[in-house]
Nucleic acid binder design. Structure first.
Lengths: 120, 120
DNA sequence: GTCCCTACGTCATTTTTTCTAACTATACCA
DNA sequence: TGGTATAGTTAGAAAAAATGACGTAGGGAC
């Protein structure tokens, strides 16, 4: 009965902590690594990710910066404002960066993307 | 000499506090009114607006809600709300490619984009 | 098996931040 | 002048978050 589950629909993280953890994971950072970049203790990061009393709040800005996700995404989840195309925080980040580039660099980035997509 | 200044180019607020004050003003709220809606004291609001020792933090979310501005705007200034939709064809292409990538490759592409954006 | 190492969760306590409650200042108007 | 409304500033209290220490789980190497 069970349809052969396609690849694996990623279970969207539902809390700020989960989203933080997801974003950190995607960047291949450990809690310790992230903590170091932020200049806080590892346990602080652990507490943020487990949505404990210790809240991200004060460091939100820097966390969003270091992980390159939007504040809105970290806090609210998917960006509800952009149903059309760009969805997640990292996609928005990519777009923002792209728009900053010179035409030459844009072309280069697209080439890189294609190469990676081909399995390069 | 001085060109007749057109209407009045609104001097863009440059700090979170100034932007908060501007947003509050636009909505015709006094510090007291805003404080009431947020459930904090008026002096707290006053301190946020005068950018005293990074304060808003804990209430950022609610402030943004009540004033109906984005967090990004409050904190960073530039309106980050706009770029949520991918417009041009090349941007769409970039996004499509991005979505095909593995998390690792996505991270790599973002890194590349950041490097290019920094002028690398 | 067990030793070790890495990554992580949790707790008690300390440290930091932020709030509140006065108090002060300025502007406006009767 | 007095009265009102709005906002800036300060000290101390209250709340929040960071730290450091401890415990757990998984994986290799031996």
């Amino acid at each position: 009965m069970a349809k052969p589950q396609p690849p694996s629909p990623p279970p969207a993280p539902t809390t700020p902590g989960e989203r933080l953890r997801a974003a950190r994971g995607e960047r291949g950072l450990t809690q310790e690594g992230l903590a170091a970049r932020l200049g806080v203790s590892r346990s602080a990061v652990a507490q943020w990710e487990t949505d404990r009393a210790g809240q991200i709040r004060g460091n939100l800005l820097r966390v969003a910066e270091v992980l390159d996700v939007s504040l809105e995404y970290l806090l609210h989840g998917e960006d509800k404002r952009a149903p059309s195309v760009a969805a997640s925080g990292d996609e928005l980040a990519l777009l923002r960066l792209y728009r900053e580039l010179t035409p030459e660099d844009r072309a280069m980035l697209l080439t890189t993307a294609r190469r990676l997509a081909r399995g390069g």
